[in-house]
């Protein structure tokens, strides 16, 4: 946190004017367009309707995690537990369905479990005064451990068709029966996960820009002591951000498990890095006070398209890891440059 009375902090922050933030988002958007162009040239199938929908599906999970992560990062924190919380939530939904609960209440239960993990993070950070990095690293192990313990490390399958609707269904899907008895997909429709992402993104943007809690999230990350002295309930604000991050991780878990129609306790490893990368590429600053949903959406699409495009181009999963690793470092490096005088 920069001391407002020190000129050093003053000059360091001067580069973070709205102009600079917009420039950053613009350059991210440009990167996105270049990626799409590049992959389209490398592989003709990349721009096909079906592949575009796959990208949309893949991105929706990163996007949901990234929105929650953005809120946490704006408060000046970090949430390393989202990948594990995603798995735990999916497992809890899966087990609830197995126990006979209808799909919607079961999914609600999963999202609530995610929110509770977030609340625990928030409690440890604000009341026990443990740095977010350590607190959420602990939750990363705790949530993963619970998910594995509950399932005996085995995936829960045969969850029924209704469980798969959220992840595999689509709005405005047009299918016609051909003469030979096979269905032909005229228009594959808009996948539910993409619609869900859009709704969550609009909701989160509204919270951050038009509601008091959003203003307080920015103020807390910008200067925590100043926010406290101004009457902002800093602890409540942080707790809110971590609960949102946990609940959105739960939602992302439900989308992912529903797509697989299987509750996988080992799913979502390292997803937190994709989410952090999406937020930072989109202009969120790890030192707090800066960030936004629209930027994170661009970031999520960059990550999603990068993964998908590399797949389509036949690049091995190992090389993909290397590339994404460099992208994460590069994004944080750019953040550092922005914060330098």
């Amino acid at each position: 946190m920069s001391d407002v009375s020190k000129p050093a902090g003053f000059y360091a922050l001067k580069s973070l004017t709205p102009g600079a933030a917009q420039l950053h988002r613009l350059s991210a958007l440009l990167t996105l367009v270049l990626l799409i162009l590049g992959f389209a040239l490398a592989s003709p199938a990349f721009l096909s309707v079906n592949n575009s929908l796959t990208v949309l599906l893949q991105t929706s999970v990163i996007g949901l995690l990234g929105i929650g992560m953005t809120m946490v990062i704006i408060t000046g924190g970090i949430d390393l537990s989202v990948g594990s919380v995603l798995a735990l939530s999916g497992v809890i939904t899966g087990m609830s369905v197995k126990a006979g609960l209808p799909v919607i209440p079961a999914m609600t239960l999963g999202v609530i479990a995610g929110g509770l993990c977030g609340a625990f993070n928030g409690f440890v950070i604000t009341k026990l005064r443990i740095p977010p990095f350590v607190a959420t690293l602990g939750m990363m192990l705790i949530a993963r451990g619970i998910a594995l313990q509950l399932t005996g490390a085995a995936p829960i399958s045969q969850l029924g068709e209704a469980f798969g609707t959220l992840g595999n269904g689509a709005l405005f899907r047009v299918v016609e029966m051909r003469d030979n008895g096979f269905p032909r997909v005229v228009f594959p429709g808009i996948p539910y996960p993409a619609i869900l992402l859009l709704i969550v993104a609009i909701g989160a943007a509204y919270l951050l820009r038009r509601r008091q809690i959003g203003r307080h999230i920015y103020a807390t990350g910008s200067n925590e002591e100043a926010a406290r002295l101004s009457g902002v309930r800093v602890d409540t604000t942080k707790l809110y951000a971590y609960v949102m991050s946990g609940a959105l991780a739960g939602l992302a878990g439900n989308v992912l498990m529903s797509r697989l129609v299987t509750a996988q306790p080992s799913e979502g490893v390292m997803y937190e890095l994709d989410a952090i990368a999406a937020a930072v590429i989109g202009g969120a600053s790890l030192s707090g006070g800066v960030g936004g949903v629209s930027g994170t959406m661009i970031g999520a699409f960059i990550i999603g398209i990068l993964r998908n495009g590399l797949n389509m181009a036949g690049v091995s999963a190992f090389i993909q890891q290397i590339v994404i690793g460099f992208v994460v470092i590069g994004a944080v490096w750019i953040d550092q440059i922005r914060n330098r005088p």
């Binding site: 920069s2 407002v4 820009r209 509601r211 008091q212 920015y218 103020a219 200067n223």
Partner: peptide, 27 residues
């Protein structure tokens, strides 16, 4: 130290913690 949130503009700082709201609770 003035206790200002550096990334926010003057009006946002002036009303920080005591934001004015519309009928619907929006800022």
């Amino acid at each position: 130290t003035l206790a200002l949130a550096d990334h926010l503009d003057a009006p946002k700082n002036l009303f920080l913690g005591r934001e004015l709201k519309t009928r619907f609770g929006n800022l």
